[in-house]
Each structure stands twice: as C-alpha cells, then as structure tokens.
Design a protein around this nucleic acid. Sequence first.
DNA 1: TCAATTCATAGTAATTAGCTATGAAATAAT
DNA 2: ATTATTTCATAGCTAATTACTATGAATTGA
Lengths: 144, 144
Amino acid sequence: MKISTKGRYALRLMLDLALNNTGEYIKIKNISERQEISEKYLEQIVTILSRGNYVKSVRGAQGGYKLARNPKDYTVGEILRLTEGSLSPVSCLDDETECSKIDDCVTIEIWKRMDKAISGVVDNITLSDLVEWQMEKVNNNFYI
Amino acid sequence: MKISTKGRYALRLMLDLALNNTGEYIKIKNISERQEISEKYLEQIVTILSRGNYVKSVRGAQGGYKLARNPKDYTVGEILRLTEGSLSPVSCLDDETECSKIDDCVTIEIWKRMDKAISGVVDNITLSDLVEWQMEKVNNNFYI
DNA sequence: TCAATTCATAGTAATTAGCTATGAAATAAT
DNA sequence: ATTATTTCATAGCTAATTACTATGAATTGA
C-alpha cells in the first residue's frame, strides 16, 4: 500500500516547476540536478504530465517545460492520479464491473471509506499549498 | 497504492471466524470453501494471524482456529497492519531514519495527512461492525 | 550545421505478489 | 497402535510490477 516513485517524483517535479514558475521553460536537466532524480526517469514522468496537458513543453535547444496552469489550480490528487493511475485501495473501486460478489461484499464499505478519506486529503491540497509550505520551511531553517 | 490479497483475505478470514464465532474451532478447509480462497494460501495467512495471537489454533483431527478475542476488540486497522506490514503511503513514515532529506521535505506533510486519514478509517471499524454490516446485507437481500 | 533539448520506445534487473508443493508434527477417532 | 485429519514450517515458482537505463529520432535556437 505504497505510493510509487512515479507519483512521488511527479509531485516533486511539479513543485519544482511551481517554485520556478517565472514563465520561462525549465529543463529536465536542471530539475534532475535539484531533485537528485535521474534525467531519463524524469523524462518519462514529465511525458505523462505533458500528455495530460499538466505542463507545456518546447523542444530543441533552450526548450523545456513549464506549468500549464496556475499552481493553485492543481490538486495533489490529480497529479497523483494521473501518474499513479489510481489512488483507490482496491481495484474493484476503479472498475465496478470487475467483481461478481460486489453486492454481497462487506469489506467494500471499508475500501469506500478509505478511498474517500484519501481523496479528502489529496484533493484539498494544491500545488500552491506545497509552495507555501516550502517557503515556510526555508524561513524556519533560516531563523533557527 | 493497493491493499494486497494478503490483507484482504485476512479480513475475510477473520470475518468468517467472527460469523462462526461459536467457540468451536473452525477448519481452514471450510473457510476456504466459503471464501473461495485456496486452502494453502489461507494457511499461510492464518499463520500470521496465529503468530500474532489474533487467533487460537488446535492441531490434528477436529482441530482448527477460532478468534482469540471478542469481535468488537479487533480493529480492521490492526488486522491489515499485521498482515500487510504497514498501511502508510510512503516508507519514510515507517522508518523515520530512512531519508536524509526529511527535514527539508515538503511532500511528507501530504503523506502524514494521508496516513492519518487512512488510520482514522481503519482504526475505527471493528470486526463486529463488519459482522453487523453482513447481517444487514443478508436482511436486505432477503426482503427485497 | 551543430549542440541541446524533448519525444518515443525498448530493454532490463530486482523485487513483490500470489500463489503451489512438500512434508513434518500433532491429535482424535477407530 | 494405526490411520485420517488437521495445523505448522518452509521452499519453490511464475507473472507482474517497479524502477529504472539505453538508444535514437525529431525539433529548435545559436
């Protein structure tokens, strides 16, 4: 029951773009250096985000990526769902037709509540919240 | 981000024992038939529950398993944690010493909230709740 | 033209998931 | 005492998934 590196790295990538949200296009190479994640793996992840129109890209020299929307208009939930595929704790919540015993199933109530609880968290945190938290961390470290 | 069969089957096994909580020892063979899960796999799972003292066992002919406590004294959370290992969405919450960047990490706040939300659900559902839900299902099906 | 970048896809090693298989140990019934 | 039935213990095995790496084409600015 773990979030994979794909989802976690995607969040860090998006946060990195949000922290460098100047309008300029940011290169994967630079994100890779800052986040200490391999370029090639980040390329794969950013491709998912790009195909989902979460980021805009420009190819070629001086190319790169930037956010397609304002940081406050991304929830952590959508970023994780796009990259992870799903956040639900059991697959029968993804595809209701999958299980034939669904009408007699008692445990599904657990999974539904769990799913709701998870969504309640991730759908109510935006990328700009993360930016804010990052700023606070930096300030705290500075004054301590 | 999925609960594995181990955890899900463990819940169904425990629910089966709770529904047949007569004081008699229940055989894996019978649970296997009712739950349509292979005997051998169930044996593995019940071993975990047995070692954790969640069930009592008797070997040999006419042996079997029964609950060690009252159904209301088991939470879904403890059953899942015992069999799944952990329910936290990232491993750095399991072992705080794992990550060196933990003090600068912004996303950990997400995972902490998610972890809390998940625990809030599973730690507040008991085995006797599941028994109750099961009864309601049966009644509903009966009168519809 | 060339260097730097994104885009596309294939490959790969390690781990995990989801079992199955074998057989020993214990117990009740015969 | 023997046998059938059960739990207990451990090994093995296949398929899928994870977490990347590798190769190279397409694009673009200098």
